[in-house]
């Protein structure tokens, strides 16, 4: 239920960001990372619409590949 998925930040407006992953654009909250410097282009781990951690590009890609595979099965 609480899997977190890496998304790439497109735009930031206060605590709200538009983030992108695998063809989906979504509004996410940066409230739980408000003490971190974040900029468009950064990857964050998103759980139930809230970014909980900043991650590297490589880690984001590894996770995306994994989720792609899992989706195929469902």
């Amino acid at each position: 239920m609480c899997l977190a998925i890496p998304m790439q930040i497109r735009t930031i407006d206060g605590y709200i960001a538009i983030a992108y992953a695998k063809g989906i654009e979504r509004e996410i909250s940066l409230y739980l990372l408000q003490d971190r410097a974040l900029a468009p282009g950064d990857f964050v781990l998103v759980h139930v619409g809230y970014a909980i951690q900043k991650v590297s590009t490589a880690d984001a890609e590894a996770s995306w590949n994994l989720y792609d595979e899992m989706q195929m099965l469902r």
Binding site: M1, C2, A4, S29, Y31, H47, V48, G49, Y50
Partner: peptide, 17 residues
């Protein structure tokens, strides 16, 4: 709202905001 710590942090954030 059911969930473990990972989910409760966002629930708390919603209320804190």
């Amino acid at each position: 709202a059911a969930g473990f710590e990972t989910t409760m942090a966002p629930v708390a954030a919603m209320l804190a905001e």
